[in-house]
Amino acid sequence: MSARPGVIRQALMVAQKDLLIEVRSPSRVVGLFFFALALVVLIAFTADASPGVLRKTAGGALWLGLLLASTRALDLSYAVETDNDALSGLVLWPVHPAAVFYGKAIANTAVLALVGTLLTPLVVALYSAPIPGGWPAWGQYAVILGLGSAALAAPGTFYALLTTRARASSVMLPLLMFPLVVPALLSASRATTLLMDGDGMGEVPGWVSLLLAFGLLHWSLEGLFYGSIVEDS
């Protein structure tokens, strides 16, 4: 008998499995990208078309697009598991439930960050919102994108499991998740917009630390509770 891998190793294996599924069927990520892109374009139509106003909406549009795309991504993430009842199999394996949660959350974070990265040049072009400040500003942007994706992925991964078994699940996920992620959406979109505006007051680090606090809170809380909900599902 080989020794059982540790929880972190298990989580990485689950993440690897989920990402492998994404790589083998790239149409899913492409579909998510176009879904988010359509939203970003539609939001531009509803806003005032003057460049100054558009630039101020850019951060909000990007993150709203990512948030709505994330609900699609999460539904897909569990659709894979509920087909053939694979989730029960995963839980019956000697895998720590927290490892299942962290693995799926890592995979969802990666997918969201990828979609966000692909969207970035289009948002910059469509909203005439270049990021001034050269490489340091782009570094900050990358941090915001990563932390924001992680902040949306943890509650999303958690609540998507809850709602797969609820009636009217596609309505329930937004109802539960959207009010909860208001702090993440607010801080990510504020930080992005400030970055595109040049951040004259140096407010970006404050928003990034709020994003980090939200992420840490949810990654720890939901990892803690995942075991008790996955056993009942």
């Binding site: 509650p155 958690f158 909860l180 702090p183 504020r190 709020l210 809380l221 939901e222 509770f225």
Partner: peptide, 27 residues
């Protein structure tokens, strides 16, 4: 299932209140 899921969801919803307040206050 309902009992344990709703309990967990309530606990998370409550703990989220202070951070929401902080974010909205900054905004």
């Amino acid at each position: 299932t309902r009992r344990s899921w709703v309990s967990v969801a309530t606990v998370i919803a409550y703990i989220n209140i202070p951070i929401t307040y902080m974010a909205v206050k900054w905004w």
